[in-house]
Simulated assay, not measured.
Amino acid sequence: MTDNWPVSDLLDIRRIYLEPAAAELPRGKEVLARHPDATIVEVESHQRIPELYGDETNVRRWVRIKREALVLGVKKTMTARPNGRSADFIAPSTANGCAMACAYCYVPRHKGYSNPITVFANIERITAYLERHVRKQGVKPSANECDPLSWVYDIGENSDCALDARISDNVRDLVTLFRDLPTAKASFATKHVNRDLLDWDPRGRTRIRFSLMPPADAKVLDIRTSGIAERIAAIDDFVAAGYEVHVNFSPVVVRDGWLADWADLLDHLDAGIGAAAKQQLAAEIIFLTHNRGLHEVNLGWHPKAEDLLWRPDLQQVKRSQNGDLNVRYRTGEKGAYVRALTDLIAERTPYLRVRYAF
């Protein structure tokens, strides 16, 4: 399922759910002009659209909805939330949702599970807010695990920016913004190789984190994404184009033979990138956390994924702050898994700095 999906299979926009205010903005007009044959459905809000939200009862329509539907709205609230692990701040989003369909993704349950892409048209307000926020921070006083020198802003918490860039110029505007901000850099994780980004001249101020996992896991879990080999093959090109490139080992799934498959992946990574990439490479490692509600929904459209994701013999229940029931690998045993993988990285790819692992 990771056979390098052509863009036409990922996106074929036929229906646009439109907040009227978005159509009055330059970015909204640009997006609408790209899809002149799409049916326009006016909505009061980009949130909780009845035809999209609550479609858990019709899970087999999800991929079709992701491919054919687009939501065009206006971002109402501007905040840069402190983060402190992957990034110093989570930037206000310029999009949410995704045309890909990874079986473990936590985002869909907040927007009806099908979760097609929503684009926010008021990009000028978002970039102006971010520029003010960055300048207010001043020079970063000390190094942390996010970055030794720069404030890091995650610009893709609830979407995949490389894929968002197929829909609008919002991501390009953000890369351009951070290019000229000497105290900050943008960051986003991606499972989609979009070589259009190679022409954007980021000048080291945008960090792309290519998400990687063993191909055996990706075939089952990373639905409608670029293949693992394609992602690795892109790393050198993005480094040469002026991006900082890291890798995101997420989610790490424990199963029979998992560590041997990670060894193979690390060997593939090592053989697939050059000296320049290795010199600046770092990794984030995130072991699987799964959600009981998503488990039940996945059983309706992709039960094979749950053979990997739902492992009561290995997992314990944890209630999240919002009341959801999540499962994660058992305390103590998980620590041993983390050590086993970080030791393997030190052995196979000793240049690969682990920024954090949990």
Rank of each mutant, 00 (worst) to 15 (best):
T206M: 12
D196C: 07
E19S: 06
Y329H: 06
I155Q: 01
D261W: 03
R27I: 00
E333T: 11
Y153P: 02
A165F: 03
R224K: 12
W151H: 09
A165N: 05
P251F: 02
V107I: 15
F358H: 15
R15S: 07
T331D: 14
N115R: 03
Y351A: 07
L341N: 01
Y243Q: 01
R85Y: 07
V63T: 14
R85W: 08
A33C: 12
P350Y: 14
P350R: 13
D160T: 15
L181V: 10
F178D: 04
Q321P: 04
R34K: 15
D55W: 11
E24W: 04
V175F: 10
T94F: 08
R48I: 11
S114T: 13
P108N: 06
A271D: 15
A241Y: 02
W258I: 04
L259S: 05
A218E: 01
N58G: 08
D154E: 12
V252W: 02
R224C: 09
F210D: 00
P148N: 13
K76P: 03
W200Y: 12
T183V: 10
S226I: 04
R125E: 13
A95R: 00
A186P: 03
S250C: 12
A103V: 11
I228H: 00
V317P: 02
N96P: 01
G28I: 00
H246E: 13
I49D: 03
G28A: 04
L266G: 02
E347C: 10
N122R: 03
R135V: 13
L294F: 09
T342Y: 02
P26S: 05
V317I: 14
G257N: 05
V152P: 01
T183W: 08
L174V: 10
P82Q: 07
F188E: 00
P251L: 06
F238Y: 12
